[in-house]
Each structure stands twice: as C-alpha cells, then as structure tokens.
C-alpha cells in the first residue's frame, strides 16, 4: 500500500456545531480514517459562522481549504 500524505480536516467544535452533531462527525471521521489507515489530523476549530451548514467540514488541499 502506498503511503498517503497526512490530511488535515477541520471540524468545528463550537456549541452550535456540536448541537447539530459535529462531535459525532469528528468521531466517525477519526474511526473510519483509522480503519482505512489514512493518516488524518482532525482539528476542532471555531465555526465559520455558516451555522445553517453545520456541521461544516473543511479539508486542507493543495488549492486551499475546501468545505
């Protein structure tokens, strides 16, 4: 298996995001990445303020953060 580069994923950890399931999303991400042996760094940041889209996950890519 080829080695994957570490991916950084942002999952908001503020009250509003958590109120609509951000903790479960972060936990599922961590669990599935571990199962697939994908190196991932999950950062619990503040919300972007787009609360109607929460839980809003951003992935760091070569062209910037993509939601």
């Amino acid at each position: 298996m080829s080695a994957r580069a570490m991916t950084t994923v942002y999952v908001p950890g503020d009250a509003s995001a958590v109120s609509v399931g951000a903790d479960a999303v972060a936990a599922a991400l961590a669990r599935e990445c571990r199962r697939r042996e994908w190196p991932v760094r999950i950062v619990r940041n503040g919300s972007r303020g787009l609360f109607w889209h929460e839980p809003l996950v951003e992935v760091v890519t070569a062209s910037g953060r993509v939601a």
Binding site: A15, S16, S19, E54
Partner: peptide, 9 residues
C-alpha cells in the same frame, strides 16, 4: 439558548 441559527433548540 443563543442557538437561533440552528433553531429549534
């Protein structure tokens, strides 16, 4: 509860 954007809370 200050969570109006994700109402009802």
């Amino acid at each position: 509860l200050g969570n109006c954007a994700c109402a009802p809370s």
